[in-house]
Structure formats: C-alpha cells, structure tokens
Design a protein around this nucleic acid. Structure first.
Lengths: 174, 174
DNA sequence: TCCATATAGTTTGATGCCAAACTATATTAC
DNA sequence: GTAATATAGTTTGGCATCAAACTATATGGA
C-alpha cells in the first residue's frame, strides 16, 4: 500500500520476508512471523521517534530529552558511563549528547571527586525547565493517542513486548 | 537494573515516564503505559537492528539489505522515489543508500525512458547473491530466537502491534 | 613498588536519518 | 503556448549511533 514516508532505521526488518500483499493469503513460518513483528516494531519506533522529535521545544532531540528526563526522575549526580549504561548507548554516544546538553546549559559536568577518570552530570535549572516544557508539549499528542488507541491494546501489548525485549537483552553479544 | 549497552535511538521513550524500579509498585495512567510501551519498542528495535547489522556479510547494512531484499521479492525496475515511499525513507536517504549499493555493484541505475526526471533501479547478479547470502546468515539467529521465544508470544503480538503501527501511520503529519 | 589490566571519557570515521534548499523535468491551468 | 505548480533526484547540514582506537587514571597481583 505504499506508506508515505518514514525510515528504514538502522536495520530495516520491513519487507525482509514480508509485504502487505501476501499477508492475507499465505501461511508463514515462525521465522517469517518474527521478521514481520520486528518489521512492525521498527516502523512504530521510527514514526513515534520522528513525531516526538518534532514536538520538542528548545531544539531538544529525543536523545537529549531522555537524559534530562532521567536526571529529573531518577536523580542527577551520575557519571556519563552510568548514564550510557542506563540509557543503553555507547559511552561515545553519551559523550556527544552530554556535550550538546552542556552547550545549551541544560546540564553541568563536574570532575568526580572520588575518581580521577570520571565526571558527574548535574541538571541546571534551565535543564529542569526544558524537561518540564517538553513533557507539557508531549501531553496533547499522548491525549490524542489515548482517544484512538484502546487501552486494551496498550495494556495487552506491554507484558509480551517486555518478554520480547528481555530476550533480545539477554541474547545480545556486546 | 542497568542494561549493558544499546542506544537511545532517534527518540528514546525509555525512562521518559517509567523506570524499572517503580514498575512493580505503582499504578500508571494510560499515557504512562503508552510511553512505556514505546520505550520497550524502541529498545527492541535497537537491539534487533544492531544484531542484524553485525551478522550481514559483504559490509551490507540493514538499510542496504532492505533495498536488495525488496527488489528480489517484489521486483526491481522501480524508481528511487517509489522505493523511498515503499521503504519509508526520504528521497534523500534513498539517494545515499542507492549510491552505496551501486558502488558495491549490487544494483544498477538507469535513466527512466519515460520520464526525464526519473531513474530506474535494477538488481545485478552480485546483488542477488549478496541478498541470498544475507538471508543465509540471518537464519541461525532466527532459529535461536525460535527456540526461546514462544510462538504464542509472536503470534499474539502481531495483530495488536499492527493496529498500533496503523495508528501511527494514519496520524503522522508528514 | 611496579607492571598488567580494567575502566572512564574522548575521538574518528562510517552509516542512517531527517529537513530544507536547489536543479531539472513534467504537468496543469489559463 | 506560456506561466505556475508539482514531482524526481541531489545536496547540505545536523543529530544519533556504533565500532574501534586512543589517553588517562585505577586497581590488583607479583
């Protein structure tokens, strides 16, 4: 049916072993179904990501918001390596995200008094406000979703999706 | 619990309104549950993408494989704009992916005889073989998943995930 | 103490992705 | 027929991501 836009992501499971046309007609092997599932998941992630990026204020990106949000909710005064582990990015990626946040004055980086190799990440007041404004900006979109997507769908999906995420989490090579 | 690696993606819904600790204890609003769901989806996509990229031969990337795979399964002789629409990336992104595939001699680009603005994408024999080899390389991983992840999980997830994808698809701004 | 190894953070180089600007060719409207 | 508009493809600039190499500091064992 040709969707209008949206990316094929890092890996695009889209159309790997499936396509819209044959969905109704054929039997699929387990492997094919898993492919299709990952395909759909990739699309959802991409669409959601792009939509979220577009509504964020202060030129914030999703990655940057995620760091601010974590600091607000779970506390700051963590090292970049800890944040990288928690948010599941490489240290190199975290370095660059933190640099952008620092340039915007949303966080402050201080040397770790106990470990000469480390730094500590602190929220600034501006960072706190930017996070707050971002949450505000996101609410209308979530509300729209809540009107259209049945709660049953969301609630039903969560436990199984978590199982799947768990499996990938346990089975990655690193 | 601090996962070891993995990225916060374009937008990272991870930890936006949720975290591992409070999952067991609190009630969540619909909005929070949706956030959590998108969070899990983002993680799964990232883990799956990275794993897939690592096993591909010929220095193929997921994006490149997706183009080859589509051409094998659905036929080549399409324009870059058509491929971009089908695979849901911008034309600019498709330009660069096709350029990389052409440099590897996996596709050929010819001028469209009927439209002076367009080109046509054709698979080469090398491209066909590279796609075949990629599928071979992916099979062991899929088999591993099939041993661990119950078919029920996959089959149960698919219809609801498709509904969710549909919603995002319908509600995007472009 | 000193060396080997592990860990923190950075840097580099690739890829993917988007948005927006830009060129060239079609198509439509008058 | 010509001007306005739409579409195809490219280019540029920016962010996110990874992998791998590199520096500096800790830590542990001999």
């Amino acid at each position: 049916m040709v969707r209008k836009l949206a990316p094929h992501l890092g890996v695009d499971w889209k159309h790997i072993l499936s396509n819209d046309e044959d969905r109704q007609e054929l039997d699929f092997s387990y492997e094919q179904l898993l492919f299709q599932l990952l395909n759909e998941i990739g699309i959802i992630h991409q669409l959601a990501s792009t939509a979220f990026d577009r509504l964020l204020p202060y030129d914030l990106t999703g990655a940057q918001f995620t760091v601010l949000n974590h600091c607000v909710r779970m506390g700051d005064n963590k090292t970049p390596a800890q944040l990288a582990a928690i948010l599941q990015v490489t240290r190199g990626t975290m370095t660059s995200t933190l640099a952008r946040l620092e340039k915007k004055n949303f966080i402050r980086l201080e040397p770790d008094p106990e470990d000469g190799r480390s730094k500590r990440v602190f929220l600034t007041n501006e960072g706190r406000m930017a996070r707050e404004a971002s949450v505000e900006a996101a609410l209308p979109v979530l509300s729209k979703a809540s009107r259209d997507v049945p709660a049953d769908t969301v609630v039903g999906l969560l436990p199984e999706i978590r199982k799947l995420r768990s499996w990938f989490d346990r089975n990655r090579s690193d």
